[in-house]
Amino acid sequence: MENNIRLLLNNISVVYSDVIQVLKGVSLTVKKGQIVSLLGSNGAGKTTTLKAVSGLLKPENGKVTEGSIEYDGSPVQNSSPEEITRKGIIQVLEGRQEFKYLTVEENLRVGTATRWGKPYKKDLEMVYHYFPALLARKGNLAGYCSGGELQMLVMGRGLMAQPKLLLLDEPSLGLAPLLVKEIFQIIRRVNNELGTTLMLVEQNANMALQIAHYGYVMENGKIVMESDAEDLRENPDVKEFYLGTAATGTLKSYKDVKSYKRRKRWL
């Protein structure tokens, strides 16, 4: 049972610049080979949770002050990003942080930084296999690619590192619905075929819960609800606040909308 856990967050608190507390005791578990999605509104602390795992809090003057983060049984909280990435945790940043002046293929090659000097040809083929759109543009500067291509590029770049745990931050941000669908299908295929464990932060709760095995809901720096993805999909609160469909499936009257604050049962 124990071996089955890839990542364990035990009651962690994160403080920025020694004053701003963003996470207030978050605990969550990611099992091997699963897709776990983390839902919540803006400012709930989802991205911070991911950064706490990947070690990217440090450049932003943030720190895990309490609790522990265990990865494959060993503590990794407050380690440097260089160490953490070398253990197999790769975060794909929010908002498509491509290297503008590098070509698509060079962008992908940066993904090999954690295992410099090892052959990477196979991985390139693998990425082009999952994202055929990239193959056509491999010689182009990334700065001139479209949003969808860039999202594929940054995800492919993450995969180049052969991660055991891939943290995806809002892969659907600003993309057309059809593209979102495609990208989520690729995520599921990666999970199925490569066995990569994935943690997914999303606003698009509907899509996220369709491919995830397990889900957490965050609010104000705390986990307020957790369950299997199917259960979460059926949960009336989640339906109302994140999926945007009411229990009855019809548009509600204004009066009911106004009462929604009271109905968030966890607050």
Partner: peptide
Amino acid sequence: IYMRSVADNQPAALSLGV
């Protein structure tokens, strides 16, 4: 390429373990 990536976008390079 790693050196160029750092010049280009430091946070992203960091996130990939450069």
